[in-house]
Amino acid sequence: MSDKSETIERLSVFKTYKLYVGGKFPRSESGRVYEVTDSKGKWLANAPLSSRKDARDAVVAARKAFGGWSGATAYNRGQILYRIAEVLQGRRDQFVREVAEAEGLSKAKAAAQVDAAIDRWVWYAGWTDKIAQVVGGGNPVAGPFFNLSSPEPTGVVTVLAPQESSFLGLVSVIAPVIATGNTAIVIASEKSPLPALSLGEVLATSDLPGGVVNVLSGRTAEIAAPLAAHQDVNAIDLAGADEALAKELEIAAADNLKRVLRPQAVDNWSAAPGTERMTAFLETKTVWHPTGSLGASGSSY
């Protein structure tokens, strides 16, 4: 027996790629999948083909998670984002392989993408408790009032992940949305959804509450249309939309005045990000309160 087993090559186990919604890994409600191939056209796996109902479920999950996530301390959110970096570091080899296959990159180039993606989580982990200090602050109004402006997350954000950069681009658009306390519905790159679906497994094991990030795969335009029109979605990042789709979705988004981040030409996702991807999904709340002031009688507290 032992002699024989040395000569037979072991058959590997394939992974069934599933969606990531509300902290669980469902198959698509549609019961359908589509073929995902590498850059040379070789079959890699079947990915779920998300339906409108999957999109609707994702919104429900994201809305449910919003209260807890936005209400968590910024420090706690930072700890969790850093945990994602730690867990990702441990699964680096898996993502290097998936990114190499998805994007047709050499192992070295794919590794650079994955390393940059890990560092991107670290970068945004550091922002959670600093963005308010950079974009908020006290206002010296002319009168006896305390006046403070603070940023707050806008709510549920639909994110169309970049079509080309299947992992670094993906992380670069998810992390800033959730760092500030929003929850996200992410539509993975249509052609290369596997790294995004695997990222769900990392998020699920990083103390990130279920529903904060929901990952859907399928036809970007089909999934995005109901989300852009959805009245319980507060914002949409069009990074992964082409010009025509972006315009169509922006029009749909106007229905409830979603905050829209238009697609921007990004040549190199490795470049240091600024704060724009965070501020695009922040509201500013200004609080007034009277202070006492010296009055006619000399004092009034």
Binding site: G78, Q79, W123, G126, T128, D129, K130, V134, T275
Partner: peptide, 18 residues
């Protein structure tokens, strides 16, 4: 621990610190 976490996050964001 929190203090190290906080300033760790500033190390690559100094140009945003004003």
């Amino acid at each position: 621990a929190a203090h190290f976490f906080y300033y760790a996050g500033w190390a690559d964001k100094l140009e945003h610190a004003g």
